[in-house]
Design a protein around this nucleic acid. Structure first.
Length: 500
RNA sequence: GGGCCGGUAGCUCAGUGGUAGAGCAUCUGACUUUUAAUCAGAGGGUCGCGGGUUCGAGACCCGCCCGGCUCACCA
């Protein structure tokens, strides 16, 4: 018999013993007086004498993290929301069956207790238990108390176990929630309206990426999971919703890496009568405030670097190429706008694609401090408006930090004739085999034919922003259930059946 | 997809060709203020899977599976 099956039998035997003592192994509603964090914030400052004088009675609940039994008494720590509280269970202070129950507890069980607060001989704030409550039995053994759960694969596949064993993981996801809450609040304060647009689309667009395909049976049509909500949000601008935003998932059928998950969360927002410069100023405000809301400071540490969201540089793409050129002899300002020079320094076939390619190779990884890169070539920007004085460039910026692209924004193209020409250019690219070229979206053009207000629009990658604000180096550490290959046979049902 | 690294007890990890190990967890016993409790004892392993080399493989070779990092593409 394997150890694990042996353990399962022992635990199931424990369930019967718990029932025999008159407790329910899987309990019901439990009304506590304090959460463990509330007890700690409320009473950590009190001395033992003060606690003795006021005799504070509490009822708490949590998961058993440690047990130290010493004959006719013992200690256990209960964990809740990443904090822990010690309980002291003494044979003559609790009913007989409660002490028997204490003897049966396993690490990982969920229990509650009544008792009064006191300080132990070593000074730890603890609950002097007078009644135990059993709430839920664990049948499997918990990860080791000192190292926690470190196996990365298990942490992602069984995130619940990761959250139990590694309190810092809970903190990351609580910070993620604060990031999203802050973004929502800031946009709402500026009059933005949250909307939901289709995740399943018969035409996909708004970005350059390969899609996931699915099928609707009744309509008998193939549908794509969206790669971006952009084209729908701009239809809403046409309809008169002048400030809209959506925070939701995009799906891109591309590679997986520390910075890419096939489904990821994007904030997209559009503001009528604005342009990319307005969006840039707005983004600077949003990012500074979201950093403060999520972490308490506009300055955060990421991979050993102080990242200051209160101080964002602004460089054109060409300036960035010059500044980050790896050799001592840097190109001149004239060279980085010279068609021949650009094509000589890249394998791409147009000057604009070449400039973008050179920028990505030369500058992107070095953009550690928060930076806006603006003025992009038209070839890589099919939905952006041209610069009035320089038609081969568009009014577009991206935001970079920690060597990652975090946001992409532009003055939205609202001329239907020009949009039609851009789509036709993309179709030509598609026919030449570019799978990621934009599809023609006639309804989008039709919407624009009714008049789309001038507007600025932007997308911000919420997962990557959260990575920086929580100091995580892999996107999987800010996504609760990142995509992995399906696991093989687990076999728990069979084991439970065998142990019954 | 390429390159590099990893998979040994429930967990964290040792183990460079010769009897599969440690700590935590588990089980038994002792212990009424411990806190990585302590003390005494015990059980627990298809060494990711499949081939091969060898008198002998956890280790060496080949293939496969799963994961991590990285490059390429993307946000």
């Amino acid at each position: 018999m394997s150890l694990e099956d042996d353990l399962l039998r022992q635990r199931l035997e424990g369930v019967k013993q718990i029932e025999a003592l008159g407790f329910q192994p899987y309990g019901r509603r439990f009304e506590f007086t304090h959460t463990i964090p509330e007890v700690l914030t409320g009473f950590s400052a009190k001395t033992g004498e003060e606690l003795e004088a006021s005799r504070v009675q509490v009822r708490i609940a949590g998961r058993v993290q440690t047990i130290r039994r010493m004959g006719k008494a013992g200690f256990a720590h209960l964990g809740q929301s990443g904090e822990r509280m010690q309980m002291y269970v003494k044979k003559d202070a609790v009913p007989e069956n409660d002490f028997a129950l204490f003897q049966l507890l396993d690490i990982g069980d969920i229990v509650g207790c009544d008792g009064y607060l006191f300080r132990t001989r070593t000074g730890e704030l603890s609950v002097h238990v007078d009644k135990l409550h059993f709430l839920s039995k664990t049948l499997l053994s918990m990860p080791e108390k000192w190292h926690g759960l470190e196996d990365v694969e298990t942490r992602y596949r069984q995130r619940y176990l990761d959250l139990i064993a590694n309190p810092d993981v809970q903190k990351v996801f609580l910070t993620r929630a604060r990031v999203i809450r802050s973004l929502r609040r800031q946009l709402e304060e500026r009059g933005y309206v949250e909307v939901e647009t289709p995740m399943m689309q018969s035409l996909y667009g708004g970005a350059a990426a390969r899609p996931f395909v699915t099928h609707h049976n009744t309509l008998d049509v193939d549908l794509y999971l969206r790669i971006a909500p952009e084209l729908y949000l701009k239809r809403l601008l046409v309809g008169g919703l002048e400030r809209v935003y959506e925070i939701n998932r995009n799906f891109r059928n591309e590679g997986i890496s520390t910075r890419h998950n096939p489904e990821f969360t994007m904030l997209e927002f559009y503001q009528a009568y604005a342009d990319y410069k307005v969006m840039m100023d707005l983004t600077a405000d949003l990012l500074k405030t979201v950093a403060e809301d999520a972490t308490g400071s506009a300055v955060v540490n990421w991979d050993g670097n102080e990242i200051d969201f209160g101080n964002i540089r602004r460089l054109t793409m060409r300036e960035a190429v010059v500044e980050f050129w790896p050799e001592a002899e840097k190109p001149s300002r004239e060279q980085v706008r010279d068609r021949e020079w650009l094509l000589r320094h890249s394998a791409k076939s147009t000057p604009g694609e070449a400039l973008t390619d050179i920028f990505e190779r030369v500058a992107e990884a070095k953009l550690i401090q928060p930076t806006f890169i603006y003025d992009y070539p038209i070839e890589v920007s099919p939905l952006s408006m041209q610069k009035p004085d320089e038609p081969e460039m568009v009014e577009r910026f991206e935001f970079y930090a920690c060597g990652m692209e975090l946001a992409n924004a532009f003055t939205e193209l609202n001329d239907p004739q020009e949009q039609r020409r851009r789509f036709e250019m993309q179709l030509a690219m598609r026919e030449r085999g570019n799978e990621e070229a934009h599809q023609m979206d006639e309804d989008y053009i039709r919407a624009m034919c009714y008049g789309m207000p001038p507007a600025g629009g932007e997308g911000i990658g919420v997962d990557r922003l959260t990575m920086i604000l929580t100091g995580q180096k892999s996107i999987r550490d800010v996504i609760l259930f990142p995509l992995l290959r399906p696991e093989g046979e687990i076999g728990i049902a069979q084991r439970l059946r065998d142990a019954e």
